[in-house]
Design a protein around this nucleic acid. Sequence first.
DNA 1: AGAAAATTTTGACAGGTGTCAAGTATTTAT
DNA 2: ATAAATACTTGACACCTGTCAAAATTTTCT
Lengths: 217, 217
Amino acid sequence: MTSQTVTKLDRVPRQRVDKFAERRAELAEAALQTLSELGYARTSLREIAQNSEFTHGVLHYYFSDKVDLILCSVRQYKTRCVTRYDQITADADSYDALMTGFVTVLAQTMREEAHMHRLWYDIRSQTLFETAFRADVAELDKSLENMIWRIMCRFAELTGEPQTLPPPVIYAMIDGLFQQCLLKHLSGDAQAIAQMQADVRLVLSKITRNPDATAEV
Amino acid sequence: MTSQTVTKLDRVPRQRVDKFAERRAELAEAALQTLSELGYARTSLREIAQNSEFTHGVLHYYFSDKVDLILCSVRQYKTRCVTRYDQITADADSYDALMTGFVTVLAQTMREEAHMHRLWYDIRSQTLFETAFRADVAELDKSLENMIWRIMCRFAELTGEPQTLPPPVIYAMIDGLFQQCLLKHLSGDAQAIAQMQADVRLVLSKITRNPDATAEV
DNA sequence: AGAAAATTTTGACAGGTGTCAAGTATTTAT
DNA sequence: ATAAATACTTGACACCTGTCAAAATTTTCT
């Protein structure tokens, strides 16, 4: 239930609502940090509160229960994640530039946000058991699929060739490569990132280019 | 520590050792069932014991701690999983037969062992946080990679064309497709399996066939 | 300034967790 | 058959979990 939230939205002045929402966001942020540090299985409300500037009781003032809090966190994570590669798409004015831009941001993401992404894979796995997260996780997954698809469309524009694989397939493939890389990267494999960059280049070159293009060019 | 185990292996008669190992396997099986039902985060030792014919205390007689038990379970899961597609590879005597055989077993696995596979993805995600599982999970992942690679080698034999993508890349791609399908399948999407079969066919046909082959044939 | 409302803290609750030691029952060996 | 080794159960321990109500604090409004 989010009855508390609804009540507030109904009759308190505008400023209040903003403050309430801000604090929710603040606590959701603390939850994100905790989840990315400990993983879903070991994340408790008291641990989350300790990563904020409040005590554990306040969580039930701003969220109806633990699920409500985590859902809020996931949505917050999404808004940051989903436009990550759009600048690259806009800037690139050639096939090679787009390719280089893409794998560069992939590497950067892996280096700087590895913990946040392990949280994502952890939550997505929870979805296999817990129905509560399914709708939000599916929506986020779809957004990521769209993000990848926008890149592929730009590739298609630049080559003049049509797309050869549907959005879900390309996303699944890139996601699989990213996930394997994350595993190796967090296990201490120093070459994992460079290897993934090479792998993505290889796969995309087979996908984005027309089968006969290599012979023509 | 598995000091208890070692002690037994050292000095008790052969029959005892077998019985000890058998019971370990039996309890590991109960753990597998529980994990695949509840997920890692909600699996407790008492719950595992309830899925066996013993009480919770016995777990500490056969395993040094919870981690020891789960590692044992994962290894047991592996031995069943890793040769799943080998028969298909041996039987198929044409490109189309191999392709059909592969996607058929993929679908069968998804239908019959969805719960076991969600456990696998759950445990693999835990590995991103918990170092204790890393070595075993990495080994299992490698075995699965090899299994997929054996299939690709058979494809290469049948087409006469060389492989175009290295083992880790192909595995990551297929795994990504499988994982997405599992998510949809468990969310109630009735077309998920058929869609995955089509997707795998599409991707493999782009990978296993020479770029110019379509023009030739 | 004082009353009212919103916010935060504190402390408790019922129940669950892994672990382990002290028992009881069962099997094995002599 | 009796003693010893093995297998299993029971019950406890210290601690952690989500939740919530009551009290204390802070902010807001008049």
